[in-house]
Amino acid sequence: GVTLFVALYDYEARTEDDLSFHKGEKFQILNSSEGDWWEARSLTTGETGYIPSNYVAPVDS
Rank of each mutant, 00 (worst) to 15 (best):
G1P: 02
V2I: 15
V2K: 15
V2A: 09
V2T: 15
V2G: 11
V2F: 14
V2E: 15
T3L: 11
L4P: 04
L4Q: 13
F5N: 06
F5R: 07
V6W: 12
A7H: 00
A7L: 00
L8A: 12
L8I: 14
Y9D: 15
Y9A: 15
Y9N: 15
D10K: 03
D10M: 02
D10S: 05
Y11H: 13
Y11A: 04
E12D: 07
A13P: 09
A13C: 03
A13H: 06
R14A: 05
R14C: 05
R14L: 06
R14S: 14
E16K: 10
E16G: 07
E16H: 14
D17H: 12
D18W: 14
L19N: 01
L19A: 01
L19Q: 06
L19P: 01
L19M: 11
S20P: 07
S20H: 07
F21Q: 00
F21A: 03
F21T: 03
H22S: 13
H22D: 14
H22G: 12
K23Y: 03
K23A: 09
G24Q: 03
G24N: 04
F27T: 01
F27A: 00
Q28T: 14
Q28A: 14
Q28F: 13
I29M: 09
I29D: 02
L30T: 09
L30A: 07
N31W: 02
N31P: 03
N31S: 09
S32T: 12
S32K: 10
S32I: 06
S33T: 12
S33I: 07
E34L: 08
G35Y: 04
G35L: 08
G35Q: 12
W37D: 14
W38V: 09
W38S: 08
W38K: 09
E39Q: 14
E39D: 09
A40T: 02
A40M: 05
A40E: 01
S42R: 11
S42N: 14
S42V: 13
S42L: 09
L43G: 05
L43Q: 14
T44Q: 12
T45W: 02
T45I: 02
T45Y: 03
T45E: 02
G46S: 09
G46Y: 09
G46L: 11
G46E: 11
E47N: 15
E47V: 10
G49S: 01
G49V: 01
G49C: 01
G49L: 01
Y50V: 15
I51E: 00
I51L: 12
I51F: 01
P52V: 02
P52H: 11
P52W: 05
S53D: 04
S53G: 12
S53N: 08
S53Q: 07
S53F: 08
N54L: 06
Y55M: 06
Y55C: 11
Y55N: 04
V56W: 01
A57Q: 14
A57F: 04
A57M: 11
P58V: 09
P58T: 05
P58W: 02
V59M: 13
V59H: 11
D60M: 05
D60G: 05
D60Q: 14
D60C: 05
D60N: 07
S61A: 15
S61Y: 07
S61G: 07
S61D: 02
S61E: 15
